[in-house]
Design a protein around this nucleic acid. Structure first.
Lengths: 192, 192
DNA sequence: ATCTAAACGGATCGACGTTCCGCTTGTCAA
DNA sequence: TTGACAAGCGGAACGTCGATCCGTTTAGAT
């Protein structure tokens, strides 16, 4: 075992493949920012200076690519949950602020919320990742607020996250303020 | 003026064109119900037994076809607004029940809410129709509730309708209950 | 019966996601 | 260093879909 990491599996990628994967991540991030997460696959490939097949080789579905691009930010959002719970005066406040963070994240990513609500099986991995990572955090916040009687019990955290995502989708109309509508919904949650 | 209706404009459609238009409306209604409003144009044409060009001739954009298919139901929803205002104990109740009607309408139409939130210019006519017809009704209900102090002022009726539409979009997840989330938001509206 | 413009249908085009296949190149052992 | 081989690559090709085009059919008027 001369490997630096003793747990590393024997399969190692070729150097050019690693470079391409990184180039693709950079290109995808740029393309998503410029044209939304629905940007044509060919555009991303062109930005990265690779062929389209290379994208599919590294990221079998668009969802895989999206997850890879936004993983850091989703992680940060997930980790903010317990932190807010610790520092906020009440669990409800923590929940409200955490939802705000989630809205911040979603509405700076053109079309991400829309993709999140699609039932295209190609997006299953995206659903799975977001939900696996964020539902437990939301549940913890919700449970804490329920425990002190600030919020009514029996609200599915998945449903709440889903609703926030939906409210952030489709901002085509300039007079529509997603954040305000989310706050309204969170207000409706409060018991006392 | 030998025309039966003196107000009829000189332009009259050929009988076969009228038949085809009706066949298309029936076929589209069936196809929308079976496969959602995103069903391929070719499928609708096949159901109606016409060529695809005939669809575009009668309904230049998909939005025109959707509007034509659902016009009656949208009208009914719009007309229910003033009626509810008259018969309900309070304007807030009328608003809540009207929103409920809107949700009823939306979530029985696969994918309609999703189309409603798309910013595809081909759907502009759909946006325009829904908004022209329903925003004034929503505004009347909202204004009435504001006047008696049940709801905070300065909420854009368009934004509220948009939010309801968003909440009804993308019901891919079985544990997501759009109606419940809408009710939560409407609850958040209430002042006293 | 004849004429004409309205209407038609399906071929066609372009955009896109996805797959396929022959070529290139990194890696490792001799 | 060199040779062999599999990992990796690029872009052509295919299927689907929306939208348009164009030669043909036909309703309705004369």
């Amino acid at each position: 075992m001369t490997d630096r990491a003793s747990t590393a599996p024997p399969a190692r990628k070729r150097a050019d493949a690693q470079r391409n994967e990184q180039a693709l991540l950079d290109a995808a991030a740029a393309a998503f920012g410029a044209s939304g997460v629905g940007v044509p696959v060919r555009d991303i490939a062109a930005r990265a200076g690779v062929g389209v097949a290379t994208i599919y080789r590294h990221f079998p579905t668009r969802a895989d690519l999206i997850v890879a691009v936004y993983r850091h930010q989703v992680e940060a959002c997930a980790e903010a949950g317990p932190a807010l719970l610790a520092e906020c005066p009440s669990p409800y406040d923590a929940l409200a602020r955490w939802i705000d963070l989630f809205v911040d994240f979603l509405d700076t990513k053109h079309g991400l919320a829309a993709v999140l609500q699609s039932d295209d099986p190609g997006h299953a991995a995206l659903h799975a990742y977001f939900l696996d990572r964020l539902v437990p955090v939301c549940k913890q916040l919700l449970d804490s607020a329920v425990k002190v009687g600030e919020v009514a019990p029996r609200l599915d955290p998945l449903g709440l996250l889903y609703a926030v995502g939906n409210l952030c989708a489709g901002q085509a109309v300039p007079r529509y303020d997603a954040r305000r509508m989310v706050r309204l919904m969170i207000t409706g949650l409060r018991l006392r």
